[in-house]
Amino acid sequence: MPIHEKSLIRPENLHVHEELEIDGVDVSGHWSTFIGSRVVTDYNEDLEEEIAALPGGEHIHRCWQCGSCTNSCTVYAVNEDFNPRYWIYLIRIGMEEELLRDGDIIWQCVSCNKCTYACPRDVAPEGVMKATAHWLELKGHRPKSPSILFDEVFSEQVFATGKIEEGRIVRDFFRRTSQPLVQEWLVEMVRRMVRHLPLKQLMTMGWFTILRPRTRGWGRARAAIAEHVAEEEARRRAALGLVDKATE
């Protein structure tokens, strides 16, 4: 699939004059589009290092811009603004402000790993997408995306009990994203799911929801994981130059 390249010229800087005469020369119309000048002064020289300090971003420096990632990307096929190669380029040259303009879609990476499969330089672009999504949120540029909220709901359950219970995940996630549980398609799906189930199995499913599946003797693992999470969070914040209020 051909890659639609984004221009670094912003649309609002393209000026077309319907009627304009300069020094007696008619320069009206599209043939003489003017480009407003722009001086980029807001480079973040640390951007590549910041992304590389977050899990998944470690190998971003290897990229040589071949475009195999974007070419193979599942999300790009649905939305041409989703362009991993372009974002890796912006990160490497430090154009933070340009990157922020796509900040609302970077989280949409579905982790299919086609990019990582195709990449000849082992950049692991899937990891770079996750690192960049985290970076946007840690730096306060974006609110937590639905994807991160789902990851958190899920991980909290695993860390707490060793296992998950799907019904609880769905309920917690919908609550945290303020979505109604009663949506026509969801109701229809549940109806189709249970229509052939014998009563005994339905009751077992009900008990499962109430009792919650759990790994026995998980307490020590839970404590060790919590400690690791806290250490890792502090490391990431330090790497991005974010000073905790508590330690300030």
Binding site: P55, H134, S147, I148, F150, F154, V158, W218, A221, V229
Partner: peptide, 12 residues
């Protein structure tokens, strides 16, 4: 226990 599915890796 859970293997971490597709979610835990995004946390760590």
């Amino acid at each position: 226990n859970c293997c971490g599915a597709m979610e835990v890796k995004n946390v760590d």
